[in-house]
C-alpha cells in the first residue's frame, strides 16, 4: 500500500531537511565550530524520518547516537536542536548535552545515553509506565547493528517479550559498528532473528524505502498499542560518512560506499514524488528552497546564540539541593 501523495511529500520534506541539517553539522564540525564528536545520519534519513512519521507525538522515542534526524523531527523546534549541537545556551538542553544527548520531554524524545545498550533497557520503563498507567503510548528505541552485541539488549528483548511491553525495536542495520562489519560481530545472516529468538514479531525491510519504514512501524505500533507486545524491525541501510564526522572510514571498500550512495533514500523519494505523483522538478526545487531557507535560519540562530553561563554547570545535579563551586 503506497502512501498518499500529501504524506509522501511531508516525509520527503522531513528527509530533505535532515539531509541538509546533517550537511551543515558536518561542515561546522569540520571547521571546528562544533566541539566534540558528531555522528551523522546522512544516508539513513528514511529510517529516521519514517519511524518518527509512524509514531504519535505522545509515543516515547529513544533516538541513538546517530539520531540528529529523528531528534529534529520529534516536534522540537529544529533550531533548538541545532543550537544544542553547537553548544549554545539556546540549545534545547542549554548546551549541556550536545550531539549525543539531545532530549526533549515535551515531545517525548527521551534522549540518548552515550553508553551503548543503555537505552535498550531504559525503554522498558517507559513502555512499562504506559501499561501501568493504562495509556496507549508505545516506546520506540533506535539501536544499531553493533549495539545489539550488548548484553542489555538480550535482557530487554526477553523482558519485553515476556511481559508483552509496547516496545518497537528500531534496529538500524547500517552494517558497521565503527570498523566492524555486522557479519564479524554476529553469527546470524539477518539480525531480525535476534527478535525471533524471543518470539518477538520481527522483520527485515529496506531501510532506504521510507514508505516501507512507515508502513511497517505503523503496523507494529498498532499491535503494541493493542497490548500485543513488542516488535523488532531491522532496517537495512548505510551511513555515508565515517563513524563520526572526520573519520576517514578506511575500513570500508569504496565500491560498497558507492553502491549504497546510488541507493540514496532522499533521491529515491524525490523520484517517487515525480514519477508516481506527478510533481514537477520546479515544484520540488521550490519546496527545497524553502527548506534551505529554514536551515539557513537555524544556522544563523545557532551561530549567533551565546554560550551558556558557567554557573549552569552546577545546576540540576540534585533535585533538592545546590552543588558548591
Amino acid at each position: 500500500m503506497a502512501l498518499a501523495k500529501e504524506r509522501l511529500l511531508k516525509v520527503y520534506k522531513d528527509m530533505f531537511m535532515i539531509r541538509r541539517f546533517e550537511e551543515v553539522i558536518q561542515e561546522y564540525a569540520a571547521n571546528g565550530t562544533i566541539p566534540g564528536f558528531v555522528h551523522l545520519s546522512i544516508g539513513q534519513e528514511a529510517c529516521q524520518a519514517g519511524v518518527v512519521e509512524a509514531l504519535q507525538r505522545t509515543d516515547y522515542k529513544f533516538p541513538d547516537h546517530r539520531g540528529h534526524g529523528a531528534i529534529a523531527l520529534c516536534g522540537t523546534d529544529p533550531k533548538l536542536v541545532m543550537a544544542e549541537i553547537f553548544a549554545k545556551a539556546t540549545g534545547i538542553n542549554g548546551g549541556r548535552g550536545g550531539s549525543m544527548h539531545v532530549n526533549d520531554l515535551e515531545y517525548r524524545n527521551m534522549g540518548f545515553n552515550g553508553i551503548q545498550g543503555s537505552t535498550m533497557v531504559t525503554c522498558l520503563g517507559t513502555a512499562f509506565a504506559s501499561v501501568y498507567n493504562k495509556t496507549k503510548d508505545v516506546t520506540a528505541v533506535f539501536l544499531g547493528d553493533g549495539t545489539l552485541g550488548e548484553g542489555a539488549c538480550h535482557e530487554s528483548l526477553n523482558l519485553a517479550a515476556t511481559w508483552k511491553l509496547p516496545v518497537l525495536y528500531c534496529l538500524v542495520n547500517n552494517q558497521y559498528a565503527i570498523s566492524t562489519n555486522y557479519h564479524d560481530a554476529h553469527p546470524q545472516q539477518e539480525l531480525k532473528t535476534w527478535g525471533e529468538g524471543y518470539e518477538i514479531p520481527s522483520c527485515r525491510i529496506d531501510g532506504n524505502d521510507v514508505e516501507a519504514v512507515i508502513e511497517t512501524v505503523e503496523v507494529a505500533a498498532e499491535h503494541a498499542r493493542n497490548g500485543e507486545g513488542p516488535a523488532l524491525i531491522e532496517m537495512m541501510t548505510y551511513r555515508w560518512q565515517g563513524h563520526f564526522a572526520g573519520d576517514p572510514a578506511a575500513y570500508r571498500p569504496e565500491e560498497e560506499v558507492a553502491a549504497w550512495k546510488a541507493k540514496d533514500p532522499v533521491k529515491k523519494t524525490r523520484g517517487d514524488l515525480m514519477q508516481k505523483h506527478g510533481f514537477s522538478e520546479e515544484a520540488l526545487t521550490a519546496i527545497e528552497a524553502g527548506i534551505e531557507a529554514d536551515i539557513a535560519e537555524m544556522l544563523r540562530f545557532s551561530l549567533e546564540s551565546p554560550a551558556p553561563k558557567i554557573e549552569e554547570a552546577l545546576t540540576f545535579v540534585y533535585a533538592d539541593r545546590e552543588v558548591e563551586a
Binding site: P35, G95, R96, G98, A307, I310, A313, V317, V323
Partner: peptide
C-alpha cells in the same frame, strides 16, 4: 567540582 561533565566548552572548563 562535584558535577557531571557538561558538553559546552565553557561549562567543561569551569568544573
Amino acid at each position: 567540582l562535584d558535577v557531571p561533565i557538561a558538553f559546552a566548552p565553557a561549562l567543561e572548563d569551569f568544573v
